[in-house]
Amino acid sequence: MRVSTGLLNRRLFGKAALAATALGLLIGISPQARASDNTLVLAAASMKDSLEEVAKLYERNTGKKVALSFAASSALAKQIEQQAPADIFISADLDWMDYLAKRDLIKPESRSNLVGNRLVLIAPKADASPITVEKGNFPLLQRIGNSRLATGEPNSVPVGKYAKAALTHLGIWEEVEPKLVRAESVRSALTFVSRGEALMGIVYETDAKVDKGVAVIGTFPADSHPAIIYPIARTATSKAPDAQAFLDFVKSPAAFDVFRKYGFSAAPAPRG
């Protein structure tokens, strides 16, 4: 399915408005949740399926409840800065955890690197022919043609920042930038491609695995972008009595088995 630039822009405007509303509802934890002792977790959108399964496993093992909210790491960090209720934050990059750390909004002793991921190029399954992803031989523009490339907003959303770094390293960022669909989260970028509203997308490998409407057509070299690392920490205002217990469980071998099933890897060492 191909759509005109004008129609796509109108759709994007409408979806942006809906996304803003949805984010407000997502982060606006209910009064019942605020009043309870439940651990409240704000996590990167790319962790949704895996973390939901980890939380169910924790609840079965302990009988304790966990409330989860998912969005772009940038949006979640800003919400924590604005005093949104939260006990644990999981970011899709180090930058947004650093952002909160510099403002004394996390408990530094609780911080660690949880898992890693890979950056991939996707297309709707109907257009899923492989493409070479390497410097000097990456025909992305030719394949995109008059369509669009969906990824996260490169100025804030982690997947978009990784995508910009990779495309810059590969020498085609300036040519590709005008064709971007700048999504508010990696899951939104995934949806644009799955629905055929963008011919290709740059997302995490784990997101591509959970959407049957897309296929991975290329993987970006690990050295083309900063290492993809998901840090986890308790917030400075965390008061839930079981927050540390859930954080410890998320870091356990049982939880890592779940993350690995969804395509996450062990957290890599940061690259300079």
Rank of each mutant, 00 (worst) to 15 (best):
S129H: 10
T132Y: 08
V133N: 01
E134L: 06
G136E: 03
G136P: 08
P139N: 03
P139W: 02
L140F: 03
I144W: 05
I144C: 04
S147L: 10
R148C: 07
G152S: 00
G152I: 04
N155R: 15
V157R: 04
V159F: 10
Y162V: 11
Y162R: 00
A165N: 02
T168A: 14
H169P: 04
I172A: 02
W173G: 06
W173C: 04
E174I: 09
V176F: 02
V176I: 14
E177H: 13
K179Y: 12
K179D: 07
L180A: 07
V181R: 05
E184Y: 13
S185H: 00
S188R: 11
A189Q: 04
A189K: 07
T191K: 14
F192H: 13
G196Y: 00
E197A: 10
A198F: 06
L199T: 14
V203I: 10
A208T: 05
A208R: 04
V210E: 14
K212N: 15
F220K: 05
F220W: 09
H225Y: 13
P226I: 10
I229F: 05
I229K: 05
A233Q: 08
A233D: 03
R234E: 15
T235G: 12
A236V: 11
K239C: 06
A240V: 00
A240E: 03
P241S: 15
F246M: 05
F246H: 02
L247N: 00
L247Y: 05
D248T: 14
D248M: 13
F249V: 00
V250K: 02
K251D: 07
S252R: 05
S252T: 00
P253L: 05
P253I: 02
A254M: 13
D257E: 15
V258H: 06
K261S: 08
Y262R: 07
G263M: 11
S265W: 07
